[in-house]
């Protein structure tokens, strides 16, 4: 309750629980992390990419789409873990039970979000590694792209947790994917430059919470940054911390009676 300071050990304990689970089910996890993104990457880069000429300033379509795909996948992984995973564990009472340990609610939430970010990083290394082999991402870009993916993971982990805590049922929970994630995936500049959208839609696309991540990751991939990237970095920083207190509040309302 009035215990504000976050204890690192508790957050790592929560994080560790998820790591243990992942290792227990590594075969299933492998499809998540490798096979699915590989298919999507090949479909977009080698399939759709064949039909599209080079994009000015971006090289091939595959090179254009790769950082967007990586960031989009990072978002999905963090959301899936923190929305779907946490919702299930709230329903099963295991989250509430974790609070009977010397762990505060904020630490529990932070552990969940850190795990969301971890999954985003693992996904990025998997897809990124694949893209490296195909020559669609320069190796120098990988650390920067992974950093962005980690921050996207924190941001969407917190957003996912908000949905998990606020959803009364599974059907409302799926809104996070149908209403939020899918549109963001397609309209945040991952698959085409925002400049090709209608004039009136462009400001909205720039404000979409996935856009700064995609924009920055592409900046790292191309190896060129300008003022727009500075603004994106600022926006991303706000987004990455802004949802966490809301998630804690909602989780408190859900778990503490």
């Amino acid at each position: 309750m009035n215990e504000q300071a976050l204890r690192w050990r508790s957050m790592v304990g929560v994080w560790r629980r998820h790591a243990v689970c992942l290792l227990r089910t590594w075969k299933v996890a492998l499809t998540w992390f490798l096979i699915e993104p590989a298919f999507v990457l090949i479909a977009m880069g080698a399939g759709v990419g064949r039909l599209i000429d080079e994009l000015p300033g971006h090289g091939s379509y595959a090179e254009f789409v790769t950082p967007g795909m990586i960031v989009g996948m990072a978002m999905f992984h963090a959301l899936f873990e923190c929305a779907w995973g946490c919702f299930n564990r709230i329903q099963q009472g295991t989250m509430e039970t974790m609070l009977t340990a010397p762990v505060t609610l904020a630490e529990l939430a932070a552990g969940e979000v850190l795990w969301g970010a971890t999954r985003a990083i693992i996904s990025t290394l998997a897809v990124g590694g694949f893209a490296l082999m195909l020559g669609w991402l320069p190796i120098s870009a990988l650390p920067g792209v992974a950093l962005i993916a980690a921050i996207i993971g924190l941001q969407f982990g917190a957003i996912g947790l908000c949905f998990a805590a606020a959803s009364p049922s599974l059907s409302t929970l799926t809104l996070v994917f149908t209403v939020l994630a899918t549109p963001l995936f397609f309209f945040s500049g991952s698959f085409f430059p925002i400049e090709v959208l209608p004039q009136w839609l462009q400001p909205l696309a720039w404000l979409a919470p996935l856009t700064p991540g995609v924009h920055l990751a592409r900046g790292f991939a191309v190896g060129a940054m300008d003022m727009t990237h500075a603004w994106s970095a600022l926006y991303l920083a706000v987004l990455s911390v802004g949802f966490f207190p809301i998630a804690v509040k909602l989780l408190q309302r859900r778990l503490v009676k």
Binding site: R7, S10, R17, V20, Q92, G93, T97, T100, A101, P102
Partner: peptide, 30 residues
């Protein structure tokens, strides 16, 4: 940290095995 709490519903984590369920609570307590 010094008081064990057993809730009415077991709240066991079915994604972890028996030992892992126990170990989790040890780690959480530091």
């Amino acid at each position: 940290q010094i008081m064990g709490v057993v809730t009415q519903h077991d709240g066991l984590d079915n994604e972890l095995n028996v030992t892992q369920n126990l170990e989790l609570f040890g780690y959480l307590a530091g």
